[in-house]
Design a protein around this nucleic acid. Structure first.
Lengths: 182, 182
DNA sequence: TGACAAATATATCAAACTGATATATTATAT
DNA sequence: ATATAATATATCAGTTTGATATATTTGTCA
C-alpha cells in the first residue's frame, strides 16, 4: 500500500466541524489537537490545494481590507471520504519521545543526566496537565453536543496519560535514589 | 536552526552499547526501542554511510560464506558527539495516535465507531503491556549493570502508560454507555 | 534429499512531512 | 508615532517512512 497520507483526513475532519482558513487549521492543531497530532504549514497549504482539485473541499475568497483570506468548506464528497476513513481500523499509533531516547542511552553520561531529563519532563507534564484539566472543565457544559462528547473523550485520555507520566517521574526518581545508596 | 536529524544519535547510541550491523539496528528499533522510537532502512543505511564519512563510526567487513555483512563500531569522536547531544535538553516529545484522531472526528460516524476503535486499542495495549512486563521481569537480573538500569527505567515508563491507557479504555466505554442511556 | 519458507543483509526511491523562512497586512500596546 | 504581535498564504531543503528489489543462508517439513 502506498504511503497513506494522513493530513488529508485531518483537514477534512477539521472542516467537518466548521469552515475555516488554513491558518485557523494550524491553530487548531497547535491547541486542541496539540497532544495527539501535529501539522505544519508546509503540509497544510499544499494539501488544501490538492483537496480542492479532488473536489473534497471548496475555496471561498473572504479577503477584507487587502488581508488575503481563503475560507475552506468540506463538500458532500469530502464528507464521504472522511467517513470511509473513520470507519477503517487504525493503521498506526506512534509515540516518539526524545526524553526516553536520552534516558535509554543515558549510561554514556551517568544517572545525573537521567535525573535532569526526568525533572524537565516532569515540569512539562505538569503544564500540559494543567491545560488539559482546563479544557475538560470547560467542555463539561457542552456535553449534550456530539462533537464535544468526542472531544471530551480525547481530553480525558490526555489527562489520564499525563497523570501516569507524573507518577512514573516520582517512581523513577525514587528508584535512582535507591540505586545511588548502594 | 537546521532540521535536527535524530537518526544520527539513535544509531550512535545503539553502537555505544556494542558494534552491530544495520540490520541488527533495525531489529533493536523494532523490539527494544519499539514503544518510544522507530526507524526504517531508508534512514538507517544512508545515515551509517554519512556517519562513517564524518568519522563517527568505522566499518568492518565481516562477510562470511558470501553473505554480505558490515559491522559498525563507534569511534571516540562519535562518543563525544553522542554525549554532547545526551546532555542537551530534549527538543520534542511527540505522540501521534491515529486512534485519538479518529475518536476526535468520530461525531461524523456516531458513537458506535468510537466504541470499536477503543476496543481495538484496548486489545493492542494488552499485547504491548504483556511484552513490556516480560521485558521488565527479564531485566531484573541484570540491574547491577548501568546500561540495563537505564533500559529498565524506560520499560517502567511503558508499563505505567499502557496501564493507564487500559484504565482510560474502561472509563471511556462506561462514559459512552451512560451517554447512550440518556 | 529436496523443496519451500523464513531469516539475514544491504540498498534505493517516491511520497510525505517538518521546521524554517519569506512576504504582506492589520491590530495592539507603549 | 512606532514597534511588536497576530493574521494569513506560500514555498523549500532536509529528513523520514513504507515499500520494494536483490541475494544468500538457515530452518522446517515431508
Amino acid at each position: 500500500m502506498a504511503n497513506t497520507k494522513k493530513m488529508d483526513y485531518v483537514l477534512l475532519g477539521l472542516l467537518s466541524h466548521e469552515p475555516m482558513t488554513g491558518y485557523e487549521m494550524k491553530k487548531r492543531l497547535d491547541t486542541t489537537l496539540r497532544f495527539f497530532w501535529g501539522g505544519s504549514y508546509g503540509s497544510i497549504y499544499p494539501t488544501l490545494n490538492q483537496l480542492e482539485k479532488e473536489g473534497k473541499v471548496t475555496k471561498a475568497d473572504t479577503s477584507s481590507n487587502g488581508r488575503e483570506k481563503i475560507s475552506y468548506s468540506i463538500t458532500e464528497y469530502g464528507k464521504e471520504c472522511l467517513k470511509e476513513w473513520l470507519l477503517k481500523p487504525v493503521e498506526k499509533d506512534e509515540l516518539r519521545y526524545e526524553t526516553l531516547l536520552k534516558l535509554f542511552f543515558g549510561s554514556e553520561t551517568g544517572m545525573g543526566g537521567a535525573k535532569e531529563h526526568i525533572e524537565r519532563f516532569e515540569e512539562k507534564c505538569k503544564g500540559e496537565l494543567f491545560v488539559l484539566n482546563m479544557f475538560a472543565e470547560n467542555l463539561r457544559q457542552y456535553l449534550e453536543d456530539d462533537t464535544h462528547k468526542h472531544y471530551y473523550l480525547t481530553v480525558k485520555f490526555g489527562i489520564k496519560t499525563y497523570e501516569s507520566y507524573l507518577e512514573w517521574c516520582q517512581e523513577a526518581k525514587e528508584q535512582i535514589k535507591e540505586w545511588e545508596k548502594q
